[in-house]
Amino acid sequence: MFVRKYGDLITGIFFLLLTAFYFSQIGTIQIIDSGSLDAAFVPKIVAGAMFILSVCMIVMSSIKIKREVAVFSDQEAETTPNTSWKSIIMTAVLLVVYVALFQKIGFLITTAIYLFLQLLILAPERKPKQIVLFAVSSVIGAIALQYIFVHLLYVMLPEGILR
């Protein structure tokens, strides 16, 4: 509900800050006077447009929040989304770790481990028998993908420590 009520305001402020940073960096762009437009022209337009749009966003969302306080508190109870933040955050962290180790350790090992952990995070039930099944299928899956892409489709994948 927090997202629904304050989401527009938060994103408006976020985009304004982002624009300020973007604008501050425009000065670092090297330009030459060629009698035509330079490399900083489009960034300036983007910064200007983004500034106007994010200010509009902040103003309009503030007005909306003031006006709709009562409406929001009424709706609050009726919509309880079926969202598991825990699995989203765990998936996000897992993805970052997977990508960070992807090249160093290699496709085969990281993918097998990633598949196993991701299955554990997403599966609705985790019985011992299922965990074994996940482990076995993750290893088989990683080997199959490696074989298909490297040997049949000629895609280069990092070998990592298995080199």
Binding site: L95, V99, Y114, L115, Q118, L122, G141, A142, L145, V155
Partner: peptide, 9 residues
């Protein structure tokens, strides 16, 4: 998970 691995590849 398979979709993710294919995306990474």
């Amino acid at each position: 998970p398979v979709v993710i691995v294919l995306s990474v590849i």
